[in-house]
């Protein structure tokens, strides 16, 4: 280390505004700092040790420091917001689930694996001009192991109208016929849910008003009044319908 080196480092004491202390007074021509070997060797130890050492700080201490309060204060959320019925996990409040029965509210179509596969999140990635998105694709008989069939928006829209007894040109909410980004979208739009009420009420032999009230109960408005969209949680709504059916078929013993 040269003499000028020493003075330059003396001035920049830790705890001083580093940026402001390097003034003209210790001005040195950079060429008077010879890039000596010892100067570089000094950086070898921090270079080699920094990655493992800081990995322990950010990869071990930090996760533990976060996990302890998280598990303590938010045990349900940290375990994945699971819904347990009769001691068995039936799903997660946050993860969509396929339900095709006519008496259930139907979620959006899904591109995750074979549909709502929570091991294979993802969307279709089809561009808006891709004919497959609109018209779908049929299974290629040349590849018997793979199923290439894909329902396009046209098919999904006519199926939606047919299921819900709507006229053939009835406007369909777009979320009912498009696949979400994750393929695990737990929600549908309010418009989508509303169009399904009549079918669900008929199949479950409930009044439409009853089902409508339940839909409202599981409708979430935009968060804080302005964030995101209003939406209906499909799995929770269907479970609530199941509970209703149970309550009707087996009246509670307390009732006279």
């Amino acid at each position: 280390m040269t003499a000028s080196d020493e003075t330059a480092s003396e001035v920049d004491r830790a705890g001083e505004p580093l940026a402001l202390s390097a003034t003209r007074s210790n001005s040195t021509d950079p060429r008077s700092h010879p890039m000596t070997r010892s100067r570089w060797r000094k950086q070898l130890r921090p270079a080699l040790l920094s990655v493992p050492l800081l990995s322990i700080v950010t990869g071990l201490i930090f996760p533990i420091a976060l996990a302890v309060p998280a598990r303590l204060f938010f045990p349900g959320q940290s375990r994945g917001s699971l819904i347990v019925r009769d001691g068995e996990v039936v799903g997660s409040r946050l993860i969509g689930q396929s339900s095709k029965r006519p008496g259930d509210f139907h979620p959006r179509p899904s591109a995750a694996g074979g549909g709502y596969d929570a091991l294979a999140s993802g969307g279709t990635n089809l561009g808006p001009a891709n004919p497959k998105l609109r018209d779908g694709a049929s299974d290629d008989p040349a590849t018997p192991t793979v199923d290439e069939s894909f329902a396009g928006v046209r098919q999904l829209a006519s199926e939606f109208r047919l299921e819900n007894g709507l006229p053939t040109t009835f406007p369909v909410p777009i979320d009912a016929v498009t696949r979400s980004g994750s393929g695990l979208d737990p929600h549908i739009s309010v418009a989508n849910a509303t169009l399904q009420i009549a079918r669900v009420a008929r199949e479950r032999k409930l009044s439409q008003e009853r089902v409508r009230r339940l839909v409202q109960e599981y409708t979430f408005g935009p968060q804080l009044g302005f964030l995101g969209s209003a939406r209906v949680s499909v799995l929770e709504l269907n479970l609530a319908l199941d509970d209703l059916a149970l309550a009707v078929s087996s009246p509670s013993p307390a009732s006279p």
Binding site: P128, P171, V172, V177, T178, G181, S182, G228, R231
Partner: peptide
């Protein structure tokens, strides 16, 4: 805007393909 290629299918709403319901078009 409603996706142009779907205009004749009487589908209403913004481009929700690949978007989540909770975020809508705005949050996405």
């Amino acid at each position: 805007a409603e996706p142009r290629r779907l205009a004749d299918l009487a589908v209403v709403g913004g481009n929700m393909e690949g978007k989540e319901t909770r975020f809508g078009v705005g949050g996405s």
